[in-house]
Nucleic acid binder design. Structure first.
Lengths: 135, 135
DNA sequence: CGTCTGAATGTTATGACATTACATGTCGAT
DNA sequence: ATCGACATGTAATGTCATAACATTCAGACG
């Protein structure tokens, strides 16, 4: 389940770009960082991102149209994952909470809703930025 | 708290368009429906939407870049609201769960994160669409 | 009354994010 | 060898959102 096929060249490059960034990147941000590796078009990035998301190696942050490398590639399986996104420094914390997941599952069961993807994102200001008095 | 100033003409038109739609609309979808009312540019829509969101009359669905009229304008205050979005018929169900909110608040407190906005969206297929065997 | 001011509006242009469509390449299985 | 599945390259286009600037409207105040 946690196993996935060898990554292709493009997928590897995109994942490395996200790993190095330590923060979310937009698809076009990734593209810019991979110009020297021969990337020319957005689709090269989007296609790699699609696969990486399927493998669980990358997450998409819906609220900011950006992507991050998964911080615990094998720590959680296909659980519901929540993100805390600092709008000041861009830092993203990833966590999961069984109780939250269970409550959402209850609603879904009660309403016979067939979930495909669950998004939980908290945007705000992280402790560090608050401490140093961010604008 | 639930009171808000009189809506302007543009705000009223945008809200009515969303009410009539019974489903999420993109900003450009709203624009198209308001051509006959004199709307010409996206900004007219976005400006109205911004205010309506502040008043709590409209929600933005981050995962599909669309907007819906709030189904219970005064039922919940500024609670965390969750959405179940059917990707087949577009239906959106809005709900809130105190336990979910409490668990997220606990994480936030523990990490001294100052939340600004919380997004919870479950995309998938609603009961009706599943029943009639949607593609 | 005149005018000052803040909010809303109108308009053009541009920026940012994502996909369609089609051609080409790569590699293993038969 | 050639077939099929998948990955890739490229151009064009579609979709979502905001910047910058001019104008209009309604109320406060002398």
């Amino acid at each position: 389940m946690t196993a996935h096929p060898e990554l292709t060249r493009n997928q590897t490059l995109v994942l490395k770009a996200l790993d190095r960034a330590e923060g979310p990147l937009s698809a076009y941000g990734i593209l810019d960082r991979l110009r020297d590796d021969g990337f020319r078009a957005p689709l090269q990035v989007y296609r790699a991102l699609e696969k990486l998301q399927q493998f669980g190696l990358v997450h998409r942050l819906e609220s900011i149209n950006a992507f991050v490398a998964c911080c615990q590639p094998h720590g959680h399986r296909h659980e519901t994952i929540a993100f805390a996104i600092c709008s000041h420094c861009g830092r993203v914390d990833e966590f999961s909470d069984a109780a939250v997941e269970e409550r959402l599952n209850e609603w879904v069961r009660a309403h016979r809703f067939k979930p495909a993807k669950t998004t939980i994102e908290i945007s705000g200001e992280c402790a560090d930025c608050t401490a140093r008095g961010a604008g």
